[in-house]
């Protein structure tokens, strides 16, 4: 674990670059990934709540799908 990278920085940069058609400055990807983590946290948390409400154990595709829209809307700039 300790030696593992948290995320592939180059990949994140490429993804953002492709979507924005802009270059990504040297360290912006860290913040981007930080934001992504916040998004993931939100998504997973909401999905967990949704799953609990739906009586499922563990996070399921259904719960994730249900909360995806909200999470995305929340993270719209």
């Amino acid at each position: 674990m300790p030696g593992q990278k948290l995320y592939p920085r180059a990949t994140v940069k490429k993804i953002v670059k492709a979507h924005s058609n802009c270059n990504v400055s040297k360290n912006a990807d860290v913040l981007i990934f930080l934001d992504y983590m916040l998004f993931m946290q939100n998504l997973v948390k909401e999905a967990g709540i949704e799953a609990k409400q739906g009586g499922e154990r563990g996070i399921t595709a259904r719960s994730v799908k249900k909360v995806t829209a909200n999470a995305l809307a929340k993270f719209k700039g």
Binding site: I15, V16, S20, G77
Partner: peptide, 14 residues
């Protein structure tokens, strides 16, 4: 979801 997120994010940032 993360795919969409990055797409949205990329456009916003751009």
């Amino acid at each position: 979801a993360s795919e969409w997120y990055f797409e949205q994010l990329g456009e916003d940032l751009g």
